[in-house]
Amino acid sequence: MLTVDFAKLPVGPGERVLDLGCGGGRHAFEVLRRGADVVAFDMDQSELDNVAAMFVAMDKAGEVPVGAGGETVKGTALDMPFEDGSFDRVIAAEVLEHIPDDMTAMAEIFRVLKPGGSAAVTVPSFLPERICWALDEDYHTAPGGHVRIYTLAELSAKLKSTGFEIGPHHHAHGLHAPYWWIKCAVGVGNDDHPLAKAYHELLVWDIMKRPPITRLAEQLLNPVIGKSVVLYVRKPA
C-alpha cells in the first residue's frame, strides 16, 4: 500500500533514494523495483532486518533491475549518518508526526538531499487525525505515538522555512480513515472487536484485489477524509 505517488516523485536507474523511517519497507521496495538504489533508514533494527531479508528475496525472485541495490541503515532522523547532498530523492512517509523536534528532522532531509533534488513528505491529514485523537487518548499518548496534528498550511510553512520549494499535494487512503475511527472508538488496541476485524478484512481484500468499485470510492473519499496528506517539495538547485 503506497502513499507516495511515483508519478509525482519519479525515481529510476542511476538515482539514490532515501526512505526515511522506512518501517516495513513498502516504499523502499517500490523504489528498488523501479531500478534506483535505495537506503532504508529507521531506528528499529527488527524492521530493518525484515526489510533486508525482503531485498534479498526480491533479488532472488528477479524483481530487482540490473544495477539497482538496496541497503539498510539504522539511525535517527535528527542526525543522519550521511554526507551533505547524498540523495537524489527522499521519502519521509508518516514520520514527522512522531518527532518532537520536527524542524531538525526537516533540516536533515534538506541537508542530505542534492541541490535540485525532490522529496515526498507524508503525514496524517488534519481532520481524520483530529477525530482519532478525540475518540481515544491512547491513540496518541502511547510510546512512539503521534505528538502533533499537522494542517497542510503548517507543514508547508515549516518545510518552506527550512529552504524547500513547495510543490503539489494530494490526499491518500480515504478508505482507511473509517477503520482508524472504528479502532479508536472500540479501543485502539482491541484488534479482536468484530467491527474492527470486519473492516480490516475489507481493507486487505481491497489491497489484494483492487476492485474498480473500491478504487472509485477511495478516489472520491481522498480529498475529504484521506488518512494521509502527501506534499512534494524540491531543494533549490
Rank of each mutant, 00 (worst) to 15 (best):
87 F>A: 00
74 K>H: 08
89 R>D: 09
77 A>K: 02
118 S>G: 11
67 G>Q: 03
67 G>K: 09
98 H>T: 13
137 E>Q: 14
111 R>C: 07
122 T>H: 01
141 T>Y: 05
107 A>G: 13
101 D>I: 12
129 E>W: 08
104 T>W: 03
101 D>E: 11
127 L>G: 11
129 E>V: 10
67 G>M: 08
97 E>V: 09
132 C>T: 10
106 M>A: 13
95 V>W: 00
74 K>W: 06
118 S>E: 14
83 E>K: 13
138 D>K: 12
127 L>E: 13
132 C>N: 14
70 G>Q: 09
97 E>F: 04
76 T>H: 11
108 E>W: 03
113 L>C: 00
118 S>T: 15
80 M>C: 03
139 Y>A: 11
89 R>N: 07
79 D>S: 15
68 A>K: 00
104 T>E: 01
130 R>S: 13
124 P>G: 06
120 A>L: 04
107 A>K: 12
126 F>A: 10
121 V>Y: 11
94 E>Y: 02
129 E>T: 08
94 E>I: 07
69 G>I: 09
127 L>H: 11
90 V>G: 08
104 T>L: 05
82 F>K: 01
125 S>E: 07
95 V>F: 00
102 D>V: 03
108 E>V: 06
101 D>A: 08
131 I>V: 15
124 P>M: 12
109 I>M: 15
125 S>D: 13
111 R>L: 01
